[in-house]
């Protein structure tokens, strides 16, 4: 069962991330792919994440696919204009990469090439529309394609954005633009997330809740302070503190597994997206603790 079939069948679906490295030595990345394959349903391959220049997403998607891990091509609008984006989408299609996640992309000021010219010729909602067009055999100018694409397209949403209303309006625009699934920014407060799901359930889309594993109380405080749209509740920070330095990561993995289990048992959403950020090797263990393996 592929990613799309899994989600559409109602299976509690799990995605994680593969981050292309900066440079041509991909040994570690290949190891991560091996760890994840057969366990998760698909892996996002990030697109110059945080505007830091690395191997492009599409090449790594192809490698992951060849190794038996289904990829989700992340596409941001930061580095390519509409010609580049459509051309890469056609390229992905002939390589057999059919899942695409349409994003706006972090600004270059966040990355390691701050002097670069940003593109943002179009943005996430417009990119979803472009994917729709390609799927129906037309480019965004209405020109006929010699053979359409067949993408399963998704998007991202930040359920805890503040103020949330403009974010929810954009969510709705993404739904109308054909997003089939959403992966959320990391969530840590299940009750608040339930509130978001009450809204999202009005639409015929699948939602995978985002998780970033907490490694320490310090990391939780950092996320609260510096990462937009993430709020780690105090009781979780206390839990990490109580576990002590040595056991903090273990406690973080427990929190993650416990919340994933709750989402699944209470059928709150359709799956989870685990952003391990350098801890890909922990993903299978978290899944085990959550009872998913």
């Amino acid at each position: 069962m592929n990613f799309k079939e899994a989600l559409e069948s109602g299976k509690f679906t799990v995605t994680a991330e593969v981050g292309p490295p900066k440079g041509t030595d991909i040994t570690e990345m290949l190891h991560h792919i091996d760890l994840l394959k057969g366990k998760i349903d698909a892996a996002n391959v990030t697109d110059n994440q945080s505007a830091v220049m690395r191997i492009n997403s599409l090449s790594v998607c192809k490698i992951a696919m060849d190794k038996g891990l289904e990829p989700i091509l992340q596409m941001t609008c930061r580095d390519r204009n509409r010609i580049g984006l459509q051309s890469d989408l056609l390229g992905a299609s002939i390589l057999g990469v059919h899942n695409v996640l349409c994003m706006t992309g972090d600004h270059t000021s966040a990355g390691d090439h701050k002097e670069a010219k940003t593109v943002y010729d179009i943005e996430s909602v417009q990119l979803l529309n472009v994917v729709n067009n390609l799927n129906s055999g037309k480019d965004m100018m209405g020109n006929e394609l010699k053979g359409p694409t067949s993408f399963y397209q998704g998007a991202v949403v930040t359920p805890e954005a503040n103020p949330v209303e403009p974010q929810l309006m954009k969510f709705e625009k993404k739904v109308n633009a054909g997003a089939n699934f959403f992966q959320t920014q990391a969530i840590y407060d299940i009750d608040k997330f339930k509130g978001f799901m009450d809204f999202a359930r009005k639409f015929d889309v699948k939602v995978l809740a985002g998780f970033v594993v907490l490694k320490s109380a310090g990391m939780a405080n950092f996320l609260n302070k510096f990462v937009p749209g993430i709020t780690v509740p105090q009781e979780l920070i206390d839990e990490l503190k109580e576990a002590g330095k040595e056991k903090a990561l273990d406690a973080g993995m427990n929190i993650c597994a416990r919340q994933i289990k709750q989402l699944k048992d209470e059928k709150i959403c359709d799956g989870v997206h685990i952003m391990a950020i350098g801890m890909e090797d922990k993903v299978p263990e978290i899944m085990e603790r959550a009872g998913l393996l």
Partner: peptide
Amino acid sequence: CPKGLLVGPCGGMSDGKCEV
């Protein structure tokens, strides 16, 4: 908007402030 977005805020907006 530093990204010049035409269709609503990006995910980087935080407490009403700009990512950039």
